[in-house]
Nucleic acid binder design. Structure first.
Lengths: 98, 98
DNA sequence: GACAGATTTAGCCAATTTGCTAAATTTGTT
DNA sequence: AACAAATTTAGCAAATTGGCTAAATCTGTC
């Protein structure tokens, strides 16, 4: 199917997804999650921020539908739900180079 | 080439591009520009905002490297530089549906 | 049940974003 | 030169975002 014109509500929803991606730390986490599920503490160590901060970032990604979580024991594991977002990076890289 | 890990600076640059996309009006304009170049006044009429507002939105897209502009007479025409961003929409749509 | 660890929620403050109006700039016309 | 149209820049107020610390919640262990 070709690129049909989204409704205003769809544009708004799409913008929400892009907004969730519009943060270096969240992109780093997504990149890590593309290799497999990770708990919050692992991701906190990865990005070097406090756990509450990381938890809220993950909450944003989850709300946007990009990741999902599963509680196992005392830990919560996040995983990438839509691997297609990884395809963005290639295009975005080309954007930056002209 | 596989998905190699970007540097912190690259993550930051990518986030900037996503941030430029994280706005319903800007997405609408990009969609319109995917059909061909448009002047600021046309885009302003399309999104229903004041021209200064639209001008600044376009400035953001240009700074992110997504669009480029060309002045012809008293008008400035914008065009989509990286059509690959249109591919995002398909994936983003799938994000919203689960 | 007390306690430690992992996670989330709440509250606070600094920084950014957004949209507007007003002013400045540029271009084409008379 | 005067004027009108198109665009950008500047300045302002409202809303949102981002990170922290403190407090609350949940889980497993002793």
């Amino acid at each position: 199917m070709a690129t049909s014109k989204p409704t205003p509500a769809q544009f708004k929803a799409q913008a929400q997804v892009f907004k969730a991606l519009a943060h270096p730390g969240r992109l780093l986490m997504i990149h890590e999650l593309s290799r497999g599920e990770r708990c919050v503490c692992e991701l906190a160590a990865l990005v070097g921020s406090e756990m509450p901060t990381v938890s809220r970032h993950l909450s944003q990604l989850k709300h946007a539908g990009i990741v999902d979580d599963e509680k196992r024991g005392s830990q919560v594991f996040y995983r990438l739900v839509t691997p297609c977002v990884m395809n963005f990076f290639e295009c975005v890289a080309s954007v930056r180079k002209g």
